[in-house]
Computed example of a mutant assay.
Amino acid sequence: MPDEDVAVLILLGVVLLGVITLQGNISRADRRVARVEHRFDLVLEHLELREEVPGRDESVALVREGKTIRVVKAYRDATGASLAEAKEAVDRLG
């Protein structure tokens, strides 16, 4: 019995280390993607290009009326963006 307990504890330790390592790799990848997206935004700005926003004219009007949450939801539905990405895109409209 004690040998089985030790084996289970070792296995749990290995799994835990694997999860921690994987989480660290994902965090680094997320930061790298964020940096690339920021650089891409700078390039778009430099070239005076705008990101295509579905229903842009209507969305701008709704933002000016203070209905930002509605526009963020519509943007997320149309693009599949995360809440943060949608909020940033809508903030750029105003």
Rank of each mutant, 00 (worst) to 15 (best):
V63K: 01
V36A: 14
D3R: 06
G80Q: 03
R56M: 08
N25D: 05
V63P: 00
E37K: 15
L16G: 04
P54F: 07
Y75F: 13
S59G: 01
P2C: 02
A74T: 04
A7M: 07
L12A: 11
L49S: 06
V71G: 05
S59L: 00
G24W: 05
P54R: 06
V53C: 00
S59E: 00
I26V: 15
A34N: 09
L16K: 04
A7S: 09
M1W: 03
R56V: 12
D30C: 08
R70P: 01
V33N: 05
D57E: 14
S59F: 02
L47P: 03
D30L: 13
F40A: 13
K67W: 00
E45M: 07
V6T: 11
R50V: 02
A34L: 07
G13H: 04
K73E: 05
G24R: 12
A78T: 06
G18T: 06
T68H: 04
P2M: 08
V15C: 06
I20K: 00
V6Y: 02
D41A: 15
V6I: 14
N25K: 02
E4L: 14
V14T: 08
L17V: 13
G66A: 10
L16R: 06
G66R: 04
L17F: 06
R35E: 07
D30M: 11
V6E: 09
V15P: 00
R70D: 11
R32M: 11
V36M: 11
A29H: 06
E45L: 10
E4C: 04
E4G: 03
G80A: 01
M1L: 12
R64F: 02
V14W: 00
V15T: 08
A78Q: 06
V60A: 07
V72W: 01
K67S: 10
G18W: 00
L16T: 11
R28V: 12
T21V: 14
I26F: 10
E52W: 04
I20T: 14
F40W: 09
V36C: 02
E37S: 13
K67I: 03
S27K: 11
R32D: 09
L11R: 15
P54S: 02
L9I: 08
L62H: 00
R35T: 10
H46D: 08
V63W: 03
R70H: 10
R50E: 10
L49R: 11
G13C: 06
A74K: 07
I69T: 13
K67L: 13
R50A: 12
A7Q: 09
V53A: 02
G24T: 06
V72R: 00
H38D: 09
I26K: 12
N25E: 09
L17H: 00
Q23I: 07
R56K: 14
M1T: 12
